[in-house]
Every structure is written in C-alpha cells, then in structure tokens.
Design a binder for these strands. Structure first.
Length: 275
DNA sequence: CATGTTACCTGGTCGC
DNA sequence: TGCGACCAGGTAACAT
C-alpha cells in the first residue's frame, strides 16, 4: 500500500503520540516477512524514544534496541491513544500489537509482506543489510542534483526501474514512478544514463515536488489509504497516468499506454514522454 | 559486477 | 453462483 508519502504520513500521525511511552506488552499474529528476533515479552518495560523513517522503513527507537517496521504492499498502522476509543480485538489480518502506556500501535497487513524486526541498533548486521544500500532521501536537504544525476549516469537500466529500485533515491514506488516520469516528460523505458541534463533536472525537481505535496496532502493517490488516526487522505492528488490506460492524457489527449517492466505495470503517455 | 527473475501471501476483480 | 486466471502500493534473495 505505501510509498514514501504514505509511510511518512503514517509516521507523523503517531510518532509524537507514542514518544516517551513505556511498553506494556507486545503480541504477534501470523508470521510476517521476517521473525521479530526476540520474544515479544522482552520488549516490556522499554521506552519508546521516537519514530524515524528511512526510505519506506519506520525506525522505532527504544531505550534498548530499535524496531524496524515495513508495511510491505498491504500494511497499515493504527494507533489508538490510551485515553481515546479502543481498537478492539485483533482481527485475522492484525499481526503485531505494541501496547504502550500512551496507546496501542497495531500493524494490519493482509498479504504479510511487511515486517517488524528488532535490532540492537543501526549497526546491527540486519539493520545494515536492510538499510545500508538505500539511496538518497528525496525530502532531505541532502538530496543533491549532482549526486542524483551521477546515479542516473551510472546505470543503463530503464529509468522507471532505476527509480523503483531505490538505489539512487528512495521512496518512489510504482505509482509515483509513473507519475513523476510523466511530469518530467521522460519515457519510462529510456536507459537512465540517456536522460539528458535538462530532463534529469526536471525529474529531480518533480520527485521532490510530487512527494512533498503528497505528504502535505495526507498521502493520497492510494484509494484505501488511511493514516493511523483513521483520517483518510482526501484524494487531492489525482493520478495523471497511473491506472489510466486508454484514457486521454491530461496534457495532449492521446491514450495513456500500459506496459510491463520487470513484472510491474508502467503507465505513460507515448506522445508526451518520447525521450 | 550489473541486470533480470523469483518468491513471499491474501484478496479483489474479471471473464466464462 | 462458482471457479480459475490474473492483478495489486515492495524488496530481498537468487540466477544469469
């Protein structure tokens, strides 16, 4: 379900509410992508220091160790404040509960591609394996055009797939990859190194602009997305190409095309996105 | 080394 | 109504 904006919106919705909380209990449902790495009971008594994000991972810092949480394809989080309405019993697709003094954090994930993993810290070998290879954060100050361009120049992979890989810039998933390439008027099949300097600049800017706007507007584009507080996105962000095959391009009217790249759908306008 | 393919899992939708 | 085929927001592990 989540690309970077949805993960960030999720983070913002519960980070400040859970910060400083004492863990009272933890429980697991069915297995997720990886084992938690310790007995849930071992988390009891630890304090939640805060919640950060790296790419599409949420990093929950504890007084001892940290939890890496990923929503996979179909995951979502709910947070019910201790003094507000309760979430009720865990359903068949709720696979992780973290009960704290300030509220209950619950992972709902039908497909179970998501994960919650305990690591000792960012230097933990597992944390390094999962996080070290990730590219630049598109919404950070450190997201520099020169480095972005260099990343493109170093690869012959079609630009759509390079964006999706997260090796240059993180957080651009299958929907936003198509959207951002449309905005920059770049063909999704163009080898990354053949993206010219002007187009690369435009792409760089559109990645920042589109993702930042999506975060601002509550992580929309996803029809079933809702933040942990239950507030749904408002659909302000209309997809221009994603899911619109056969419909007229909003820019030129030509029918939007659908193609397969590495088992994933790509949507684009063949007239607007030629090079 | 770079690049392409597979695997993980459930549920919804579509055509018959 | 039932059933099979296919599709879905991610990404590590493996194969080439």
């Amino acid at each position: 379900m989540p690309e970077l904006p949805e993960v960030e919106v999720t983070r913002r919705a519960f980070a400040s509410q859970i910060a400083g909380a004492r863990i009272l209990g933890a429980s697991l449902g069915k297995p997720l992508r990886w084992p938690l790495g310790l007995e849930p009971a071992q988390l009891v008594g630890r304090e939640v220091r805060g919640v950060r994000r790296r790419g599409k991972y949420l990093l929950i810092d504890l007084s001892e160790g940290m939890l890496l949480l990923h929503l996979g394809m179909s995951g979502s989080l709910r947070f019910a404040a201790a003094h507000g309405p309760a979430l009720g019993a865990a359903g068949p697709h709720d696979h992780f509960d973290l009960e704290t003094s300030q509220g209950l954090l619950r992972l709902h994930d039908p497909r179970r591609f998501g994960a919650v993993v305990h690591v000792r810290g960012e230097d933990d070998p597992l944390a390094r394996k999962l996080l070290d290879h990730l590219g630049m954060e598109p919404l950070d100050e450190g997201f520099a055009f020169e480095a972005f361009r260099a990343g493109l120049q170093a690869s012959r992979t079609p630009i759509k797939q390079l964006l999706l890989s997260g090796s240059v810039v993180v957080g651009v998933g299958n929907i936003y990859a198509s959207e951002v390439l449309f905005m920059a008027r770049i063909s999704p099949t163009l080898p990354a190194r053949e993206v010219g300097p002007r187009k690369a600049r435009k792409l760089f800017e559109e990645i920042r602009r589109v993702l930042a706007l999506a975060v601002e507007q509550g992580g929309t584009t996803l029809r079933d997305f809702s933040a942990p507080d239950g507030m749904a996105g408002h659909f302000q962000l209309q997809a221009r190409v994603y899911g619109r095959q056969g419909l007229p391009c909003t820019h030129c009217g030509a029918p939007i095309q659908l193609l397969r790249q590495g088992q994933r759908s790509t949507f684009y306008c063949a007239r607007c996105q030629k090079a």
